[in-house]
Design a protein around this nucleic acid. Sequence first.
DNA 1: TGACCAGGTACGGTTTTCCCTAAAAACAGC
DNA 2: GCTGTTTTTAGGGAAAACCGTACCTGGTCA
Lengths: 222, 222
Amino acid sequence: MQFNHILIVEDQDLANLSLRLTLEGLELPRPVHIYHTGHALSMLKKALSENEPFDLLVTDLYFEEEGTAKQLPDGMELIRGAKLLQPELKVLVFSTESKIAMIRGLYEDLGIDGFVRKARGDAGELKNALEQLSENRRYYPRDYRSLAAKENQHEFTDRDKAIVRLLNEGFSQKEIADWLELNGMPPFRLSSVEKRLKLMREAMNFSKNQQLIGFCKDLGMI
Amino acid sequence: MQFNHILIVEDQDLANLSLRLTLEGLELPRPVHIYHTGHALSMLKKALSENEPFDLLVTDLYFEEEGTAKQLPDGMELIRGAKLLQPELKVLVFSTESKIAMIRGLYEDLGIDGFVRKARGDAGELKNALEQLSENRRYYPRDYRSLAAKENQHEFTDRDKAIVRLLNEGFSQKEIADWLELNGMPPFRLSSVEKRLKLMREAMNFSKNQQLIGFCKDLGMI
DNA sequence: TGACCAGGTACGGTTTTCCCTAAAAACAGC
DNA sequence: GCTGTTTTTAGGGAAAACCGTACCTGGTCA
């Protein structure tokens, strides 16, 4: 494996420890290791400017805040920033996230290179993932393909998600129509909102909008 | 600390490794360690019959299945069984679960003695928890009290949960009323269902039933 | 140019939900 | 038993959601 400069961003002490041990077991160089996303970006920047860029970023998605005050960027913001700064940087996400919509978003929107779920057999998966990545291939979790296909009955647009989100926030369909108009997301007549909801329900074999809300929540779409 | 016989049930390789290291650091005896819930109960039983009962059970809540076939009991079933078998056994849950309703259920319904969330600072929390438990006290996560209080605006009865669940499954309020009658959960007239939903909405400051669904989903209540 | 199609809209009728009031039933205390 | 309170039920009117149809628009393609 050809990783020379590895950055790990992870705040779970225990996960951390074992992550390091696993890398050691693979005879990879000792990674740089930080506990929250606060300085991760500046670290990447510094390494880049010193001509010793990182070539692998391993990060979690969610971080607890230290106190209550400062709001640290979460893993997704970090990834977005990192890929912007250094597009060729390999990014491996190591997280408990299991919502398919969310994981798919990581690959498609953020361009991550691998995802390993903290779960049974994660040590082995981690090893596989690192091998794939070092050969410039993406690594997908074992069951990703089948699950992603199953979910894919209806392709939710941003507008769809907005509608479901607003519905979940308690707005009436009329109000949602007004909101869509205000935010320039045509079409925005009540009848269109009705029609779209009907379409979504039918695609999912639901009879009630409530089911849509539950479904999207489960998927992590809203 | 007075733990002599510790059983760890955890299938995440990495979490596992570090869990063991932490216990070692506390100079606790080497724990017995298994990767899924399958034989955990029989193990407890055997130890009991041999007059060397376990005095601490550390377990996760969710386990991935090995293949696709066999359905292993999850952490909650294990705990239920363990407490039934050996009521004085201390049970510490070590999981990423963050849904308040769920955690509260663990304490109140299953009678667990401690809960440590896999998150920032978990190593320290684990240590604290073990100290508390060894002094026969329960250990609650840092933010449990405040969160539990906040959630507690409305006490959801089983009937409430059933109503919300059925609503989420796409039944009309009329059908829910019929279902309640069928399942002997009075009152079960439509008007009662309406009234109850109204009460729940008002308690939560919601205007639409959809919001209730989202809320209960987030809490892990349904 | 004209036929055609797709997507958005308007609108009317039906169903479901929402909300309020009042009657009936269940329950507690005496 | 009686009385007062609470809970459940019944019903009706208003609002919202649901559903089908028909119309209008803009674009495509022959």
